[in-house]
Nucleic acid binder design. Structure first.
Lengths: 170, 170
DNA sequence: GCCATATCTCTGTTGCAACAGATATCGTTG
DNA sequence: CAACGATATCTGTTGCAACAGAGATATGGC
């Protein structure tokens, strides 16, 4: 295997154990690099990445609101600590909780007008950032990258139990 | 644009704003899904992902040791809190600090025998996990994915200052 | 109608991450 | 050799994330 770009970037002197490991490390590193730039953008609005993600999800359901569990299911980076994440958004006045009457276990979370305002201000810079980060890739490359990322993650999304069981038996 | 796989997976009803945004979300989500399985593996050895990463880096330089700054530069997910990360590894007996005499500002970090033992136990399960996560992709697809991930991250790695300055002016 | 089970959310605790400032050392300049 | 800036690491503080357990409510069997 020839020396890869990541090896040089990281100053590594020995090759990767296998191509699968190279993909794993490249995936995590690229995600880390790109998400840091997004983090710098959110920071100016006192938001974290997951917080912005939740706001955007709630905007997609602003007519009905969404229970916490559904919010987590739609998040890009899923967190088990959705309660306090919503707590902080609520303290900032960006979302509002509403206990339902039909099923009193459920708490529907709605985005507020203030939340929609913040989202509106962030929409354009976010898109501009994404475009700037990827302007050196062709449309075909972006489509292929999308396809491969989805395919890579696909088997782990449904049979999670099987994978976890396998991992524990190692 | 036709409905994508991620839209269905996330239960979204409206399309992405653009393909660049779809790539960004797919990248973060795939990295999150795969890294969680790795986290479950490290957890059994009371290690975090970055901690394992540091140990592996130090193994690659076990003849000379490495200053903290160099460790950060080689990390997959770079952290500004390397001091305490090394603190915890040192408390666990997996690394050892050594103040150099030539330049007394430098602290060379070495992996200990115990650290090498932990690494040796983790090497095979990690490779097995990576292979299991990617067994449904062909060798060509893995190579193409590697190429695209490296290309996507490439411009952000060198002109970081320029990008950051640009982001701040938004 | 009552009890067991499942679901949803919240709380308590621990540990890590991020940012800013402090300390110690080195190299250079006058 | 004294002072200045640069470099490398450490410390203090704040806030978030992860995990376990508890409280409240709904559902289904009897």
């Amino acid at each position: 295997m020839a020396k890869s770009a990541l090896q040089k970037a990281l100053g590594k002197k020995q090759p990767f154990a296998c191509r699968e490991q190279e993909v794993a490390l490249n995936l995590l590193r690229t995600a880390d690099v790109l998400s840091r730039e997004g983090h710098a953008l959110f920071e100016r609005y006192s938001l974290s990445g997951p917080q912005f993600n939740v706001l955007r999800i709630l905007r997609g359901h602003r007519d009905t609101g969404l229970p916490c569990q559904r919010i987590v299911a739609e998040m890009v980076t899923q967190t088990p600590d959705i309660t306090r994440l919503v707590d902080r958004l609520e303290a900032a006045g960006l979302v509002r909780r509403e206990r339902t009457e039909a099923d009193r276990r459920l708490v529907l979370v709605h985005v507020t007008a203030a939340g929609l305002t913040v989202l509106a201000r962030l929409d354009e810079p976010i898109l501009a950032l994404h475009r700037a980060q990827m302007e050196h890739l062709s449309a075909d490359e972006l489509a292929e990258l999308n396809r491969l990322l989805v395919k890579l993650r696909q088997p782990a999304e449904k049979p999670v139990a099987a994978v976890k069981h396998k991992a524990r038996s190692l």
